[in-house]
Design a protein around this nucleic acid. Structure first.
Length: 123
DNA sequence: AGTTTGACTGGAG
DNA sequence: CCTCCAGCCAAAC
């Protein structure tokens, strides 16, 4: 993931640390939320942002997930865009999802009405 | 300090 | 189906 901890260390003691702290917290929320998405379901950048308390920060979620990388414990591949499309430049994502039982037709889109994770009804 | 850049979104052609 | 666009907002130039 982004080394926000390092940034925090560098920035501690300055007037910047408040802002960086918020982003650190947002990052933690994102990790927590994405980790909660069960296998066989997907969520969207916008949903994650909203659950983290910042509905207008979908793009920031994308950036954070990209920095986390697919080699982490966090199942970033279960996050697709609101149209059900996997990330364009991440070829393995569709296969990872299919492996979990998420169907992706020749349209290249996930059927969101079927596979979208509903945290409220699920837990 | 101003501009560009996205793993975004929803709507309009 | 596609592309384009405005709105979005932190980060990176």
């Amino acid at each position: 993931m982004i080394n926000f901890n390092l940034i925090l260390l560098i920035v501690v003691g300055t007037d910047m640390h408040k802002i960086k702290l918020d982003i650190l917290q947002f990052t933690r929320s994102v990790q927590e939320i994405v980790s909660a998405v069960p296998s066989g379901k997907v969520t969207t950048y916008g949903d994650v942002a909203a659950l983290a308390g910042f509905p207008s920060h979908a793009r920031l979620v994308g950036k954070i997930l990209g920095c986390i990388g697919m080699d982490s414990d966090i199942p970033c591949h279960r996050v697709v865009n609101a149209q059900g499309r996997p990330a364009p430049h991440w070829l393995n994502q569709a296969d990872l999802l299919r492996r979990e039982g998420v169907a992706i037709g020749n349209s290249g889109r996930v059927d969101m009405s079927k596979y979208r994770w509903q945290p409220l009804s699920a837990e």
